[in-house]
C-alpha cells in the first residue's frame, strides 16, 4: 500500500538494486550514473509523449462535442489511437525544405521548441518526492526554460523564407515580451507567500484546502492563467499561428514530422502550464484523501487542461496591439499592485 502512495520508493529501490548489481560487475560507477540518467530521461520522454498523445485525442474529441460533432472514432476504441495514426502518417510524409530557406536554422527550430518544452518537466514534482531533480530554484528554472521555446518559434518564422511565417515569428517575439513580465510578477507574489522557489516546498505550503493560493492570491491566479494561455499560443492568444490570417503562422512551411514536433511541443507546453497552475495555485498533490497524491495532481491537471481547451473552442482571437495593450497596460500594473498588497499584508503580519 505504501508503494502505491509513494512511487519514488519504487524508483529508489530499483536504482539501489541496480547499483549493487553494477558493483558486482566491477565497471566504473560514473558509467552507471550516466545510464541512470538515460533511463530516467527515456521514462520521462515516454510518459510525456503518451500523455501528449492522449491530450491530442482529448482535445479533438472535446472540440468535436463542443461543436455537436463526434470527432475521431474510427482508429481504436473511440478513436483513441488516432494520434498514433497521425504521427505514423506524419513520419511517412516528405519533409519539405523551402527554396532559399536558411537550412540550418530551419532544421534546428523544431528541435529548440521541442527541447524547451520537454526540459521544463525535469523540475516538476507530481507527487511528494516524485521529481527528477528537485531544484531549489525550480519555478525559476521552469519559467526560464519554457520561455526559450519562443526562440525556436522565431527561428522557424525567420528561416522559412515566407512572409506569413515571418509575421508569425515576429508576433511571437512581441507577444512573449508582453506576457513574460506579468507572468513572472504573478508567480512572484505566490513565491512571497510560500517563501520558497522550490516547487515541492510551494506545494507543501498549501496543505489545507483554504491555504491554496487560488484563494489567497486570486488575482495572481487570473493574471498567471491569462498570461500562460498567451505564452503557449492558445486561443484567444494564438496570434503567432492565427490560421485565418497567416494560414499557419510560423509553421506554415513545415511538413511531415517537423510539423508534428511543433504540434507535440505545443501540447507538452500546455501540460507544463497546467501543471504549474496546479502546483502554484491549486495545491498540487494535496487532495481530500482516498486517492494517492499523484491522482489528485492529475485530476487537477486534467481540469486545468479542460479549461484551456474550453477557452480555445469558445473565444475569438485578440489582435496583436490589443494583446500588447492587455499585457502592458492592464496585467503588468495589476500584477505589480498585487505584489504591493501582498507585501503590505505580509509586513503587517
Amino acid at each position: 500500500m505504501k508503494y502505491i502512495y509513494d512511487i519514488r520508493l519504487i524508483f529508489d529501490f530499483v536504482f539501489s538494486l541496480g547499483a549493487r548489481l553494477w558493483e558486482l560487475t566491477g565497471l566504473p560507477l560514473w558509467l552507471y550514473s550516466q545510464i541512470k540518467i538515460v533511463v530516467i530521461g527515456s521514462i520521462l520522454l515516454g510518459v510525456i509523449s503518451l500523455a501528449v498523445m492522449f491530450l491530442i485525442w482529448l482535445e479533438r474529441r472535446l472540440s468535436a462535442h463542443f461543436q455537436s460533432r463526434i470527432g475521431p472514432n474510427r482508429v481504436g476504441w473511440q478513436g483513441s489511437l488516432q494520434a498514433v495514426a497521425d504521427i505514423v502518417k506524419l513520419l511517412a510524409k516528405e519533409n519539405i525544405t523551402p527554396a532559399n530557406a536558411d537550412v540550418v536554422v530551419y532544421l534546428l527550430a523544431p528541435m529548440v521548441v521541442f527541447a524547451a518544452a520537454f526540459m521544463a518537466y525535469i523540475a516538476l514534482p507530481v507527487a511528494p518526492r516524485l521529481v527528477v531533480n528537485n531544484f531549489s530554484l525550480g519555478i525559476l528554472y521552469i519559467l526560464s526554460i519554457s520561455s526559450l521555446g519562443v526562440i525556436g518559434i522565431l527561428m522557424a518564422g525567420w528561416s522559412s523564407n515566407n512572409k506569413y511565417s515571418l509575421i508569425g515569428g515576429m508576433r511571437s517575439a512581441a507577444q512573449m515580451i508582453s506576457y513574460e513580465i506579468p507572468l513572472v510578477l504573478a508567480v512572484l507574489s505566490v513565491i512571497m507567500m510560500a517563501g520558497s522557489l522550490n516547487l515541492s516546498e510551494i506545494v507543501a505550503s498549501q496543505k489545507n484546502f483554504f491555504d491554496w493560493h487560488i484563494f489567497r492570491q486570486p488575482l495572481a491566479f487570473l493574471i498567471y492563467f491569462v498570461a500562460a494561455t498567451a505564452e503557449i499560443n492558445r486561443l484567444p492568444f494564438d496570434i503567432p499561428e492565427a490560421e485565418s490570417e497567416l494560414t499557419a503562422g510560423f509553421h506554415t512551411e513545415y511538413s511531415g514530422i517537423r510539423f508534428g514536433i511543433f504540434f507535440l511541443a505545443e501540447f507538452a507546453n500546455m501540460m507544463i502550464v497546467a501543471s504549474i497552475v496546479t502546483s502554484l495555485f491549486l495545491g498540487g498533490w494535496h487532495g481530500f484523501g482516498f486517492l494517492p497524491p499523484i491522482a489528485w495532481f492529475l485530476i487537477k491537471d486534467a481540469f486545468t487542461i479542460f479549461t484551456l481547451i474550453w477557452f480555445r473552442w469558445t473565444f475569438p482571437r485578440f489582435r496583436m496591439d490589443q494583446l500588447m495593450n492587455l499585457g502592458w497596460k492592464i496585467l503588468t500594473p495589476l500584477a505589480l499592485l498585487n505584489i504591493f498588497v501582498t507585501g503590505i499584508r505580509m509586513f503587517i503580519k
Partner: peptide, 16 residues
Amino acid sequence: FAMDLGAITPFLYAFK
C-alpha cells in the same frame, strides 16, 4: 466570419 476572428465553434452551430 466568426472563424476569421478565430472562433471556430460558431461556424458549426451556424451550419447546423
